[in-house]
Design a protein around this nucleic acid. Structure first.
Lengths: 326, 326
DNA sequence: ATGAAAGCGCTAACAG
DNA sequence: CTGTTAGCGCTTTCAT
């Protein structure tokens, strides 16, 4: 078995309390005995039991992170940044993946709460009021990113709407006859798709500002074929995609038909994932500044944990990345 | 504060033990009181304290996972598969990222041990004997993947050597005058690069079998320029890359020089990452079967945790993926 | 400067 | 079928 404070106490002929004082250098203790105890601790490979400590202190120095998955570069970048930040602040992290399953997401959050994490960073796919209540009732600080669940829950996001408005406006300016918005196929309308809704809103705003009729919305499973139909209707057509992966899929699909982005059709993505670097022609996109989001979110979370003053709603501006496809 | 078994006991006018018995339906208990207790538990939103439970039972139903990072699709796929598997077996997971830092890796493993995870899945970058000892001394089962650390540590990997031998043999058969092996730039030679070493070994074996002189090894920071030099020496040249990302980087670099893979030079990667789908021409690669690795590793880990019989060394065969660049 | 004692919330052996 | 008791390992008053 592992050596405990009790063992150290026996070994050093002192009380458990004294051992603790040496280990956590807290309270008054003679340098003499302290040295002796620390030595014994090292020698015997003492390691604090984090479960016991967490239980006793009601503080685990762990922050939980719940996101969709890690195949998506967006989350991958967030996670990297979050771990960095956490380590610098002496916190550990506990990453869990809900894979776009609202039920699972709730279970995972619950599990983290049951493990007494000190705070949770959450990219949710839930949107019900019940769920919002569930989060509100947790005594543990929870900061949400990506999808907003309720106005009063701490949230940090990016300016999706403005970014897409700008992008769409650019397409309109460039004289495309049809500018369409391409959304992911939603398996379940009860999912929280706040980000995509915001992007779509931005898309619509651009038409309002230009004073022309709104372009079509392409969504759902058959989106590739639907885009093809649009293109076949004639006229120059651009596709504003609500995510780089859709843009990539579309490009791949059209390439099979001998159609080239930037020439035969316009194309823009969103997210600014790394892999766009390897694709030609370079796709227009928006860098959604994952590191900045992660950092802001962690700042907010740690502030909430420490009971410090903090904003509970932040909106970051993103950067348009010029490509050759729009 | 959250409601505890103590509270429930008081509320239901029974002892704490009885409450436990109702909650965990263990031992004999009258259906009557059990129902009453469960009702009260639900009503008051009772949640077991996982820290306390873990401490008392010396079992946390959590398995720790330590990998490099999540930007790399290889790990992303592993993690997805691992979480799936864990959930199905009523385990939770705790993902930690070492980012190729050996010291950090050790700290993270240590932290997981201190948290009493029941088992650890580890993709290590360490290779020292001390580290092997450190792992051996842990009373917690640890299964390693990707890089082997020591012969006696549970390990599950893929047949890197054979795969690269085959790939290299193909290049030789195709009549390339020069076939080079491209390795990642290693910042630190003390890192464990077992997988890459195995791949390089396979590369060399192919020349042995063909009875011709070994092709060059390109490694280190200036690998792009080095590859260009090779190409400029004349003759048909193929690059066998020890990872898709290097192949992608190389392709991008050469594209700037107006050189096309599969025409002006041969190219092959390794890993079979998804994003290759979006790149033209399609790069020859090897699918390293991450899901299979994850599943086998988890099988092994759970067997070790349960003290069941199990192999502690598995080598999976991988699948060659034909592209258009070799 | 050190120690004794109670407690975090849950579990497990042993009685009755 | 139910209760009593002790304990997991660490923390934290409160004494001395």
């Amino acid at each position: 078995m592992a050596v405990t404070t009790n063992d150290l106490a026996r070994i050093c002929h002192v009380s458990r309390t004294t051992v603790i004082r040496a280990l956590n250098d807290t309270g008054r203790i003679s340098p003499e005995t302290k040295k002796r105890i620390l030595e014994a601790a090292r020698e015997h490979g003492y390691r604090p039991d984090l479960l016991a400590r967490g239980l006793a202190k009601a503080k685990t120095y762990t922050i939980g992170v719940v996101v969709l998955d890690v195949m998506n570069q967006h989350f991958a970048q967030i996670l990297n940044a979050v771990e960095q930040y956490a380590l610098q602040h002496d916190y550990g992290i506990n990453i869990l993946l809900h894979g776009q399953d609202p039920e699972l997401e709730k279970e995972l959050v619950q599990r983290l709460l049951d493990y007494h994490v000190d705070g949770i960073l959450l990219s949710s796919v839930n949107k019900s009021e019940e769920y919002a209540d569930f989060l509100r009732e947790a005594k543990t600080p929870i900061v949400t990113i990506d999808n907003r669940i309720a106005d009063d829950l701490p949230f940090i996001g990016i300016n999706n709407r403005d970014a897409v408005r700008e992008m769409t406006a650019k397409a309109i300016r460039k004289g495309y006859d049809t500018v369409a918005f391409v959304c992911p196929p939603y398996a379940d309308r009860s999912l929280n798709i706040y980000t995509h809704e915001e992007r779509y809103a931005g898309f619509l705003e651009a038409f309002g500002e230009a004073g022309i009729a709104e372009g079509p919305l392409v969504s759902g499973d058959g989106y590739l074929a639907a885009c093809e139909s649009l293109l076949k209707q004639g006229g120059r057509t651009a596709f504003i995609c609500s995510g780089d992966l859709f843009a990539l899929e579309l490009m791949k699909y059209f390439r099979q038909k001998e159609l080239t982005a930037g020439k035969d059709y316009g194309l823009a993505g969103f997210d600014g994932v790394d892999i766009l670097d390897y694709v030609v022609p370079q796709i227009d996109t928006v860098d959604n500044c994952d590191e900045a989001v992660a950092e802001q979110a962690m700042n907010m979370l740690l502030a909430l944990i420490d009971g410090r003053e903090t904003e509970t709603e932040v909106m970051l501006n993103v950067k348009y990345v010029n490509g050759k496809t729009l």
